[in-house]
């Protein structure tokens, strides 16, 4: 098994952290994983992305041209990764930040209003965790429980009080994505 995921959005949307959460969950469930951020000039202009590769065996390339899975937290990322996604792949899109639907018919585009859901929970910063929850519907190798355990194990102690709301964000994202027919 090998799955590649790209998570992309504006700086400040928690792109890199949400990727780390997925990587921790993969590691703790006994798999190989790589997490690699864009750094330097790519990040100028406010966009950030990271690539996560999850596998059973030693991972070769940590970078991937056409991922089967991606999260686009803003419109520029939607534009970019809708084009590069593998045929049959799944793209989770933060509907709150885009003003259009899918162009391609050969991929699954799942529009989830991550900002609104996060605000309903009471903290707009949880938007990235809503998106991760949605991603898990297309990543059966990692369960909601795996991600919850990873957050509990690796979140710094000073942030532990935020765990329940993070769990709720993950769950709400998962449920929202599940409701959308594939």
């Amino acid at each position: 098994m090998q799955k590649e995921i790209i998570i992309a959005g504006f700086g400040g949307q928690g792109v890199l952290f949400s990727g780390q959460v997925v990587a921790y969950a993969a590691m703790d469930s006994g798999r190989q994983v790589t997490w690699i951020p864009s750094y330097g000039p790519e990040m100028r202009g406010g966009t950030a992305n990271c690539t996560i590769v999850i596998a059973d065996n030693e991972i070769g390339s940590p970078l991937v041209k056409n991922p089967p899975l991606a999260i686009a937290l803003n419109l520029p990322s939607f534009d970019k990764y809708e084009d590069t996604l593998q045929k049959g792949g799944t793209l989770i899109v933060n509907q709150s930040m885009v003003d259009r639907g899918a162009k391609r018919g050969d991929i699954h585009v799942i529009l989830v209003p991550c900002n609104e859901i996060a605000e309903e929970i009471g903290d707009k910063k949880l938007m990235n965790m809503v998106a991760v929850g949605a991603l898990l519907t297309a990543l059966p190798e990692i369960t909601l429980k795996d991600v919850e355990k990873a957050l509990e194990a690796h979140l710094p102690a000073r942030h532990k009080h935020l765990l329940p709301k993070n769990y709720e964000a993950l769950k709400r994202g998962f449920e929202a994505a599940q409701k959308i027919p594939a």
Partner: peptide, 10 residues
């Protein structure tokens, strides 16, 4: 190279 410097792995 920079990618190994910046990459996270278990």
């Amino acid at each position: 190279d920079g990618s190994i410097g910046q990459m996270m792995e278990p």
